[in-house]
């Protein structure tokens, strides 16, 4: 299918290009506030500013920038600018708690004050994890272990998840990719792009089709991994708030369609009042299986 783009590009080989002046409406630069608050950790956010399309894009700290964070109805507490990364603001003294609401506010001379609010999702773990070793062989005869992850979704609310799989060995702990045919995980784009199975390094999904019930996710990892000494497979379940999920999804869409003249550009989700960016939150749990 990619050949279609190739063909079109071929036709553009004879095309002509010119720089066209386009009058964009005046846009004041705005503060950009980014951060995913992680449960059981301190608070970290990043403060930068936006640039006009005719400006050279850069990541400069905002002179005089200040950031505060407030927990629930509590008073705002200043966050501290990192010495090495001047875009970064931390507050290690605060531990992010599931179920709490946090309001992050940033200001700088010459800019409107911006604000983002997030409520940290509750911790959710896999109920059980089952494995059927070597139960799948792909078309190249590669052997896979088949994992069934049981997840009970809280009823009455929309929930958003990411799944990551790690291999922990004596030597290192690293993220591994996995395969799946699970309709909740597999992006059908991937399946229909000529693959008989979706290959993912990070699975994202929501509870639209299993809200409030127990769902069995099925993923395949190469049997090769467990043949390493003292290998442990870890399944990390990230429970995100809706804003974080929407931001990650929409920004990925914008990256994917960038430069494609035949795709409508994606508008990125933004929950920062008077500015750009995202204040989201995530709770992470890990299920370890020693092999």
């Amino acid at each position: 299918m990619k050949s279609i783009y190739f063909i079109i590009l071929l036709s553009f080989a004879t095309a002509c290009e010119l720089v066209v002046p386009i009058d964009l409406p005046d846009q004041e630069p705005k503060l950009v506030l980014n951060g995913f608050l992680e449960a059981d950790s301190g608070a970290t956010v990043f403060l930068s500013r936006s640039y006009g399309m005719y400006e050279e894009f850069d990541i400069d700290p905002v002179p005089g920038g200040q950031v505060t964070i407030a927990e629930n109805q509590g008073s705002a507490v200043p966050m501290f600018q990192d010495r090495d990364d001047s875009l970064r603001f931390d507050l290690d003294a605060l531990t992010i708690q599931p179920g709490n609401t946090y309001t992050v506010e940033a200001s700088a001379p010459g800019y409107e004050t911006v604000r983002g609010v997030t409520t940290v999702p509750q911790r959710i773990t896999f109920d059980t994890v089952e494995v059927d070793l070597g139960a799948r062989r792909d078309r190249d005869s590669v052997l896979f272990d088949v994992w069934t992850l049981h997840l009970t979704d809280p009823p009455g609310e929309e929930n958003y998840y990411f799944l990551r799989v790690y291999l922990d060995t004596d030597i290192e702990n690293y993220l591994i990719c996995f395969e799946t045919l699970d309709p909740v995980l597999a992006d059908l784009d991937v399946l229909n792009n000529g693959n008989d199975v979706a290959n993912l390094c990070e699975g994202r999904f929501n509870d639209v089709i299993f809200n409030g019930t127990t769902y069995e996710l099925q993923v395949f990892t190469e049997a090769f991994y467990r043949q390493q000494p003292d290998a442990t497979i870890e399944f990390e379940l990230l429970h995100l708030d809706q804003a974080a999920y929407n931001y990650l999804l929409s920004s990925e869409r914008q990256f994917n369609t960038e430069g494609n003249p035949f795709a409508e550009p994606a508008i990125v989700f933004n929950n920062i009042e008077n500015g750009f960016g995202i204040i989201g939150s995530v709770t992470s749990t890990t299920y370890r299986v020693e092999l």
Binding site: Q27, F36, V282
Partner: peptide, 30 residues
Amino acid sequence: ISLPLQQYRSTYLGDGNDPFSSFYSSLSYY
């Protein structure tokens, strides 16, 4: 056509946690 008006820094899960990662990119505001 849709054209962007501004550009700004993106973020991702784990941004800032990995000392070896300097991944970020710009997003466009439409």
